[in-house]
């Protein structure tokens, strides 16, 4: 039994960072320290850029993100139909990647303090051996409409195949649940 005692300390040292890592929340990629976020009352969530194979995935995730953001009651989120009206009136070349001029024009039409743009990087199932699980990866940016500068940026990836899935052969969580985890993680980053 001596070998157990010998291994205990190195094993504990190896596992400690993993445990500590699990306790840490994810942090935003960028936060402008000069920005007064309390001044942002109304936001418009623009259509997300879709880098996945699913044509409608970005719209699904955008709806979940905008709805969940409104449900926090911290910000008023303009309805998608109204955002679409603003996008049409401004004449965005690509609403997923707006220019500074387009954003400042949008401010005068929709009277929003900020816009949120996003890039959906992954939305689908991943396979490893016999295991399969859903994976969602999203990054979003908050752009204030006064100057068109990015004041906050965050990203999150949730789902995928865990060690437990590999060992037990489970199929992961449904796509909607994974999407909600990503959205909640991003909102935690935004409001932390």
């Amino acid at each position: 039994m001596k070998w157990i005692k010998k291994l205990a300390v190195p094993l504990f040292c190896c596992c400690l960072p993993l445990f500590l890592g699990g306790c840490a929340g994810s942090t935003p990629d960028y936060t402008n320290p000069q920005m007064d976020f309390s001044a942002v009352r109304t936001v418009a969530v623009l259509p997300f850029q879709n880098l996945t194979n699913d044509d409608q995935a970005a719209e699904r995730v955008r709806d979940a993100f905008a709805g969940r953001l409104l449900a926090t009651e911290a910000l008023y989120v303009l309805p998608p139909g109204e955002v679409n009206r603003g996008v049409t009136r401004v004449g965005f070349r690509s609403p997923q990647t707006p220019s500074v001029e387009e954003i400042t024009k949008l401010k005068s039409i929709l009277e929003v303090d900020a816009v949120i743009t996003g890039v959906l990087r992954e939305y689908g199932s991943v396979r490893s051996g016999s295991s399969e699980a859903n994976l969602v990866s999203l990054s979003v940016q908050l752009i204030e409409t006064q100057n068109g500068t990015t004041v906050w940026s965050g990203s999150s990836t949730q789902g995928g195949i865990s060690q437990m899935d590999r060992l037990l052969g489970s199929g992961g969580r449904p796509m909607n649940d994974v999407t909600m985890k990503v959205v909640n993680d991003l909102l935690d980053q935004l409001f932390e």
């Binding site: 309805p79 998608p80 139909g81 109204e82 955002v83 679409n84 009206r85």
Partner: peptide
Amino acid sequence: IMQSGPSLAA
């Protein structure tokens, strides 16, 4: 025509 749901105008 409401491509993304109703706007405030609608």
